[in-house]
């Protein structure tokens, strides 16, 4: 067991096996995330040298720089990181339980359910506090998940049916959102249309506060349930015979997946393919063990979001191109590649 680091608290309350490679890969990607974030903070209408950005954080930057970095750009960067991490974690869980490399919450219509709920909430409860948005989106995602599971169930759920019916639910969700938008006042219409592509334009600190507890808490929870995902990899029969409460675990994990998707959708709308890309890249680097995939993919998800958002802000300035455009520009070809790779399954 030279490849592993054991980590235990005294009374065995917590015991972790840390894979050495996973450990240093995680550190590298965490570092990369920070670098990309710092570069992204420096770029925009007014370019600030990365070193000056760092100075701002050390309290040594000029006042103007501090204002731009901390008030204008930082919230958006933090949101990009949180949304990317949530999506990536949701995708990791999804792929872990469905055991299909093509499964992702956005492809199976779970994000769609979240946006239906979120748009309906914005439309009908205009006056209520916006802090309710994440739980509402979470509710929509959960309902979509349940619907997907129930409808796809026919003496068990095959990935086959799950995927087909998921695509159906996704299309239905976007049709319903379109109808809802028809009913909404003009101001909301623009926002709602952006929603369907996925954008983090115009977020501020209140949005960060709104989703931070959800993202962080749920990702942590997913990490704690990691070993239960790993057991499921062995196949249903083996998992049950080694003592896994399979159906309960699967349900719990799906709910967490839905909650993470809802959290991301509540600020960013339907940002496609991040949840698909990040876990795949992570698996390529460190192998299929869930705990490692979860950690590494959250960093990768954040990096993808940061880069996509940076391009969207800078490449066509002053126009702000929604991040969703870039994530699917990269994600869709990758999805097709996966389809090709798994053609004989």
């Amino acid at each position: 067991m030279r490849n592993y680091h054991a980590l235990r608290t005294k009374k065995d309350l917590l015991s972790l096996h840390l894979h050495n490679k996973t450990l240093w890969v995680s550190v590298i990607f965490a570092f990369l995330t920070v670098i990309v974030a710092v570069i992204s903070l420096g770029m925009g209408e007014m370019n600030i040298h990365p070193i000056d950005v760092v100075k701002v954080f050390l309290g040594m930057g000029s006042e103007q720089h501090a204002l731009i970095v901390q008030q204008f750009r930082l919230p958006r960067i933090v949101i990009a990181i949180l949304v990317g991490a949530s999506l990536a974690a949701a995708g990791s869980i999804m792929q872990g339980i469905v055991r299909n490399p093509l499964a992702a919450p956005d492809i199976l219509g779970i994000s769609g359910g979240a946006s239906v709920a979120a748009v309906a909430f914005l439309l009908w409860f205009e006056t209520s506090s916006i802090t309710w948005l994440p739980p509402i989106a979470f509710l929509g995602a959960t309902l979509a998940t349940l619907l997907l599971y129930v409808v796809a169930w026919k003496k068990g759920v095959t990935p086959f049916r799950l995927v087909l019916i998921g695509v159906g639910i996704k299309i239905a969700a976007s049709a319903i959102v379109t109808v809802l938008i028809m009913f909404s006042p003009f101001m909301l219409q623009n926002k709602a249309v952006l929603w369907l592509t996925g954008s983090i334009y115009g977020v501020d600190w209140s949005d960060v506060i709104m989703i931070l507890p959800w993202s962080a808490g749920l990702i942590l929870l997913a990490g704690l349930l990691g070993r239960r995902v790993n057991i499921q990899h062995l196949g249903d029969d083996i998992a049950v015979s080694v003592g896994s409460r399979l159906q309960i675990d699967r349900f719990l994990l799906l709910i967490i997946c839905a909650a993470l998707t809802g959290t991301a959708v509540s600020v960013g709308g339907e940002i496609s393919f991040v949840a698909l890309l990040a876990p795949h890249i992570a698996k390529q680097i460190i192998g299929p063990s869930f705990g490692g995939v979860l950690v590494v993919s959250t960093f990768i998800g954040s990096i993808i979001m940061l880069v996509a958002d940076l391009i969207g802000r800078v490449a066509f300035a002053p126009v702000d191109v929604p991040v969703g455009v870039f994530t699917s520009a990269v994600g869709a070809p990758f999805f097709i590649y996966l389809l090709y790779k798994n053609r004989n399954r």
């Binding site: 995927v163 929604p322 455009v325 870039f326 869709a332 097709i336």
Partner: peptide
């Protein structure tokens, strides 16, 4: 059917977001 549907979904997603991006610009 599954491969066709998935390929269709991917192409649709790709085309839709390209279109959206161009319209924003």
């Amino acid at each position: 059917p599954v491969k066709l549907t998935l390929a269709g979904a991917a192409i649709t997603a790709f085309a839709a977001s390209m279109r959206h991006g161009m319209l924003v610009i």
